[in-house]
Design a protein around this nucleic acid. Structure first.
Lengths: 198, 198
DNA sequence: TGTACATCAGTGAACGCGCGTTCACTGATGTAC
DNA sequence: TGTACATCAGTGAACGCGCGTTCACTGATGTAC
């Protein structure tokens, strides 16, 4: 049955929203078109009226996940202010245990190489925007080298993503190690982000 | 046709070796039992004489990938000596472009949460052994806080894995960013590993 | 050492299943008059 | 404003395919005598 243009647009948005969460929770290969559309309150038949392919949906879902991450950073650490509150939110058991609305880089970072070009493109844009967002929240280096600030932003992002990923991967088998990883990276990066180091 | 006990053991080892490389290159879901056994020079029918399931093979393949990584660390940075030569080997385009015999944490770190318990167990053991190996190659902190050394080892590992993962994920869409990530993390971590910082 | 036979590593066809995608159909929408 | 009909969003059955796993079979191995 046909449906209002507005309703149709809402349906499309609901599919992207569901996909964005489910892909982060279960991976791109771990969830199918039928289950995503069902989660959005629809059946799978109409899917290809909205998207050219599952890959095309994955690309949009990826972009939306990054947008959500940026919003969370802005909420916990406003631009221009220090990054530390965001770090303390990012490197927590809460974030570790909730992939679905967490960081896409930690959720499927190592899987991106094997995804469609469109997904890779959205991911690279998202990563660059994260780097810039971190840079905006890093105090100027005392010695005044501007180049090193972006180096530091990139390294902080790498450690955040790697730390959360490793913490997640070890959570079930070695909960103590998992917690230690979160705490260690949090402490060390807070020092780096405050500029007390170098 | 039956085969010498030794031959059979060699076949089993060949399957693990092929799986270890192929899972890193294409992910656990990206390669099947038939293709792995074929790569090992066998057919898929005999597979379940060697392994209880694909998951059981994945667990062994994971353990072997970690063992290979440890061997490479020992070769480029002997225990007790400085970590930097290993960092400079780890964070390179060569490693980025060759998942198959590279670091398992970067190859499928974000996928481990969704794998079988046995795979998660081997992964956690591998991660812990990496942390210990890095710790062995870190100079004593000047101020003498011993606790912070393991914190630093964990953060270095997190940044290595996160950095390589992000570099790989962005390589095709944004090669310059990809290269910048490698170079930045390499420079920053070398400072951390030399203990010139803190 | 030589022979007879039970064992069992490996083969390839077959299974059931879930996936991405297609398609004929339905019926509400929204437009032309 | 009211009516007739073309449009098209959504449905659900069906497709082809590849996967993990099973199984009857083969024939070389290795053991018992």
């Amino acid at each position: 049955m046909k449906v209002t243009k507005q309703k149709a647009a809402e349906h499309r948005a609901a599919i992207v929203r569901a996909a964005s969460r489910m892909f982060r929770e279960r991976g791109f290969d771990g969830v199918g078109v039928a289950e995503i559309t069902h989660e959005a309150g629809l059946t799978h038949g109409g899917f290809y009226g909205h998207f050219a392919s599952k890959d095309a949906l994955a690309a949009e879902a990826c972009a939306q996940a990054f947008a959500g991450g940026q919003a969370k950073m802005a909420a916990s650490a406003p631009p221009g202010e220090n990054l530390v509150p965001y770090l303390e939110r990012y490197l927590t058991k809460r974030h570790r245990d909730r992939c679905a609305d967490g960081c896409p880089m930690a959720a499927y970072g190592s899987d991106i190489v094997r995804q469609d070009k469109a997904v890779q493109a959205r991911f690279a844009e998202g990563a660059e925007s994260y780097i810039r967002a971190i840079l905006e929240r890093l105090p100027a280096t005392q010695e005044g080298e501007t180049g090193a600030r972006r180096e530091r932003a990139i390294t902080i992002l790498a450690a955040m993503v790697g730390g959360l990923t490793l913490s997640r991967a070890t959570a079930k088998s070695d909960p103590e190690l998992s917690a230690e990883i979160l705490a260690s990276v949090r402490t060390q990066l807070a020092q780096m982000a405050e500029g007390s180091v170098t």
